[in-house]
């Protein structure tokens, strides 16, 4: 750290940005890694069922499993397009 750097210090240090980003992404990847094996399959099947009725993309379905003490919460988040076009017309 030089004397002149002292005046340039208003910018945030990139190393701390790097650390913060890594903390977030590693935590997310650990959650995926440590989750039960059926999660990807569950996600795929859910997507299949939902897409029978509405058109959605894979990244619009979010399945997360969170552990909180003794119990686990399975959270399913499906983002429906707006307005939702019906794939199958009523007979």
């Amino acid at each position: 750290m030089s004397f002149i750097d002292y005046f340039r210090r208003n910018r945030r240090k990139s190393a701390s940005v790097a650390k913060e980003r890594l903390q977030i992404i590693l935590a997310r990847e650990h959650a995926d890694r440590d989750g039960p094996d059926f999660l990807p399959e569950l996600k795929r099947e859910l997507l299949e069922v939902v897409s029978r009725y509405v058109e959605i993309d894979l990244d619009q379905v979010n399945v997360t499993l969170e552990r909180d003490g003794d119990y686990e919460v399975l959270e399913l988040n499906v983002l429906l397009p707006d307005p939702s076009p019906r794939k199958r017309a009523a007979p």
Binding site: D5, K13, S14, A15, K19, L22
Partner: peptide, 16 residues
């Protein structure tokens, strides 16, 4: 570079 805040420090890497 670690000292200048441009590079992850060894303690940060170990912790991560």
């Amino acid at each position: 570079r670690v000292d200048q805040g441009e590079m992850l420090g060894v303690e940060d890497i170990r912790e991560l």
